[in-house]
Amino acid sequence: MTATTRAKTNYLVTVLGGLFSLLAGMLITLRNLFRRPVTEQYPKSKPALSKNFRSAIALVRFEETQTHDCVACMQCVQICPSFCIAIEGDKPEGLKRKRATEFHVDYALCSVCGLCIDVCPTNTLKYSRVYDQVAYRRDAFVYDLLTEFRDAEVAYLEKARQEAAAKEAAKQAAAAARANKDTAPAAANASKELEND
């Protein structure tokens, strides 16, 4: 075979090979033409969020108290790698335990790592399920997590105060009773002395 004929054969092989790979591609395209489309037509059809979907953090609303249980221990503030949590806490009047009075999260900084949820001692943090936040300003992403709890918190604190007061009263009553028991004989003697006079 001379060089020219070899070149011609190679050329032919290339052309046929190209034709074949073209047809192979076409065949796959044709097969896929009859498959169900996989495109999701968002926002017309919204896919379900996954069960562990991570978004900005939110506070858990507990069944029995109907409010959160943030005690402003600041552990999440300290562990947050993005420094995006700001909490202020105070002891409410008549209560011994601290409660959060301010709880702000800057979701624009958050990296949804979940370390704050891990460290929370009262398990009052969870991931929210918001996913379509849009804003023109960054500060729109600073969420005040306590807003939805304001009313519930007032009711809870009132109840807690009453409970605390009741507890305190019971405690005092018990103490008084104990004191009465201790002082009763003395008092009886005293009254006897009074009678004698």
């Binding site: 996989v38 069960k51 562990n52 991570r54 979940g114």
Partner: peptide, 18 residues
Amino acid sequence: EQILEILDRVTGSRLTYC
């Protein structure tokens, strides 16, 4: 996308897993 959905379901993220 199938992989991302499998992992998303467990980890809660699609790309930057923690």
